[in-house]
């Protein structure tokens, strides 16, 4: 899932500037799971902002709503009826959700309350770590299910650098060395032969931004199949 964290309150307040009517818009999907922008967090953020406004004597009305999903147009329509009552919409979605909100309500100033961090997995309660870079060319079948593109800071495809340190990464000693993990996994699987071939330079074309994807079932003449 997409993992995000809330921006510091000071930064959010500075973005709001002189806005008097603020709607905090939450998202019930990834950012709810990672406790950054779901219903609970939206409630908390809204009340923190209210308290701050009150303390500084600022006239500010802050309401809140949490949508099922902000990255899907159909869930945004529900907002249309009352968006006009607000000066700004403060979104606690990931960057994708914020942008769709801005696209749907193009006459409104949309502000991001989160920093979107990565695609990752939950390690345990309250801890997530990055696992996928969405490179568009998965090679996990060659690396024992451990992604060197994501988990090695240097994207190394042919083995560890000299900074591998007792199984840890020199860039951040809290992280495991991806190549030590890969080696150990393949060793356990009896598939060290997978490391024999020299991996060619990665094709970065699938990562050309902005990417777009049309499901084969939805391809029409106006949207030719991607090669």
């Amino acid at each position: 899932m997409i993992v995000a964290e809330r921006k510091p309150l000071d930064e959010i307040e500075a973005m709001l500037a002189s806005a008097e009517r603020v709607l905090v818009v939450g998202c019930g999907t990834c950012v709810a799971v990672c406790m950054a922008g779901g219903e609970k967090e939206v409630e908390l953020l809204a009340s923190e902002l209210r308290m701050r406004a009150q303390a500084s004597g600022q006239r500010r009305r802050i309401d809140q709503v949490t949508l099922t999903r902000q990255c899907d147009r159909e869930y945004l329509d529900a907002l249309a009826a009352y968006v006009e009552e607000y000066d700004v919409l403060l979104s606690t979605a990931c960057g994708a959700g914020v942008q769709l909100l801005a696209e749907r309500f193009d006459g409104k100033l949309i502000l991001p309350a989160l920093n979107t961090r990565f695609i990752g997995t939950a390690e345990g309660p309250g801890v997530w770590s990055q696992r996928c870079l969405a490179c568009g060319q998965c090679l996990l079948h060659l690396t024992g299910g451990v992604c060197p593109v994501t988990r090695c800071p240097k994207n190394l495809l042919n083995g560890p650098c000299g900074g591998t340190n007792h199984g840890k990464c020199e860039v951040n000693p809290e992280n495991d060395c991806a190549w030590t993990l890969i080696y150990r996994r393949l060793e356990k699987l009896g598939r060290l032969d997978l490391l024999d071939a020299i991996q060619p330079p990665k094709d970065y074309r699938p990562m050309t931004k902005p990417a777009r994807l049309v499901h084969p079932a939805f391809q029409t003449e106006s949207a030719p199949p991607t090669k």
Partner: peptide, 13 residues
């Protein structure tokens, strides 16, 4: 390097 084995894989490559 510790562990040495992955280092040797890369050395051979």
């Amino acid at each position: 390097a510790d562990p040495l084995e992955p280092q040797l894989v890369k050395f051979a490559k």
